[in-house]
Design a protein around this nucleic acid. Structure first.
Lengths: 288, 288
DNA sequence: ACCACTATGTAAATCATTTTCAATTTGGAG
DNA sequence: CTCCAAATTGAAAATGATTTACATAGTGGT
């Protein structure tokens, strides 16, 4: 289902004068439209209600109400998200823009997510002798650490290796039943591929969180595909870290559920030790 | 502005029988409601139209149309996000549930975010002699690392310290003009507080990403408040990591913008070296 | 078992939206 | 420049959806 703003972009060329006024209103005051009747919208734009109806039709909506729903879906947080690629440097606008990028990255990932593959991966991890999380570079090493951080709490033996030489060495020590969880945003990391290759020759299973159809994925037994377009603004961070973090969370949650009581007991122990040493409120989250 | 589902959760206890049917329908078939009239909704639920109107009012909406807009804002991805607290263990449901938690965490953070404080914090960081990112425990140490990872790319001298003893030692070496960025989800971490105290006595400015009104915040010159309720399901991860990551991104982006050309040049260099050594496609993101 | 209060539905009334149609404007050809 | 045809727009009527008012059924407490 296409969103109403991209439709607007398409039909904009053959819009009439009054309709262009409405288009501007839509882009700048979507939150107003969402909470107004057709009369209010017409008045604010200085056109007549029938013109508004016609505008909605032209945008592919059956009625004004259907149109409003579409607008609401785009303006979901009720505010100024529509200026997602705004060039504004006002702090509030930058914050909003960043937020919508985050939301889009996560939603897109969920959309293309192969839950079946993720579930199988969680199965393999649940029964692993050792889980080695491999990754290098900003996002990937963060994910490797996070994966380790999440899995050890569930009572799994796990390590994070973010150095290529160490990955290769660690891979050499693996055996059948062990698992490598490899993250690579580009999917091109040759040194990582070499480590995975080594691990496989010793019987380890390779799970890759990466872009499909690239060397890292080719080496994996199970690939959980994550494929996001990167933004163009070099000053802005890549949103892929949210996608990777989401998938890591998901895998950890699946593993926790599969292991059930075993994981619960392990988490309880971790928490017990933490709250003992810190005399903190028992309700605090696991790990600061 | 509270979202309609949290309102539903609140008022659920004093809902009548028919209204409960509608609540179920709302949770399971929001996408249907969004594209239907009040008559259709009434029919599908087996109740009368006035009951639907009354249900909407109880949820704080002026009219059925206003209600539909609210629903559309929550169900923006057109699917089944609404079962946020589902007890289903089907992989797809778990994935959706995790996603909505992520989205909510980010949206909530954006809502209560003090952009003015964040902007001031970015100013301080931009002009720092050294930025020391402190954090310990799962989320906070990840954030400290990430902060360092983001800032050094912008040409700032920065380090990440995730060990309490090292934090104290490092703090002792700081001087006027240096900055500590401290993360603490609980806000109670006493050892972190001690390190901050030390840093301040030597003239460092303290920026805290933490829960307001707690010891860590009390020690900070600038607090960027992050305050999220934690879920009850122990097997599920805390969503606060997304909120912290979001704020980290935001700070890094502000800093990058404030430093402008200086940061751009630094990023370009980092990228240049990376692509030289890896012979990767030049379009790849900075750092894997 | 009765009463009072709440919940729900029916039908009428209201209100918003859409359709129809007439007026105005625009663009092109003579 | 002027006239005509087509497209655009708005006023008013018509439609259709939603809400209100009221009556009935149900529920819980004394």
């Amino acid at each position: 289902m296409r969103d109403i703003l991209s439709v607007l972009q398409d039909v904009e060329p053959d819009l009439s004068k009054s309709e262009r006024i409405l288009a501007t209103l839509l882009r700048s005051e979507a939150d107003f439209i969402v909470n107004a009747g057709i009369t209010d919208v017409a008045e604010r734009a200085g056109v007549s209600p029938p013109t508004v109806t016609r505008f909605c039709r032209r945008l592919g909506c059956e009625s004004f109400t259907a149109f409003k729903v579409q607008v609401a879906q785009v303006a979901f947080a009720g505010t100024r998200y529509l200026q997602a690629n705004t060039t504004s440097v006002a702090p509030r606008d930058v914050a909003d823009s960043l937020l919508i990028q985050l939301q889009e990255a996560a939603a897109k990932t969920r959309e293309i997510l192969d839950v079946e593959a993720a579930s199988r991966a969680a199965d393999v991890i649940s029964n692993a002798g050792l889980v080695a999380a491999f990754g290098a570079g900003g996002t990937s090493s963060m994910i490797a650490d996070e994966m380790q951080n999440r899995l050890f709490r569930l009572g799994l033996r796990s390590i994070s290796v973010t150095d290529h030489a160490m990955q290769l060495m660690q891979a050499a020590t693996l055996r059948h039943g062990d698992v490598i969880v490899a993250s690579s945003v580009s999917g091109l990391n040759q040194q990582l591929v070499r480590a995975l290759e080594a691990g496989k020759t010793y019987g380890a299973t390779v799970i890759a969180l990466t872009r499909p159809g690239r060397p890292v994925s080719a080496m994996a037994d199970i690939t959980i595909a994550i494929d996001l377009p990167e933004g163009e603004n070099i000053l802005r961070p890549s949103t892929s870290r949210y996608a990777y973090l989401y998938v890591t969370d998901l895998l950890a949650t699946y593993v926790a559920m599969k292991r059930g009581e075993e994981s619960r007991e392990s988490l309880r122990r971790v928490k017990h030790q933490l709250s003992n040493s810190r005399d903190e409120d028992d309700k605090e989250a696991l790990g600061d």
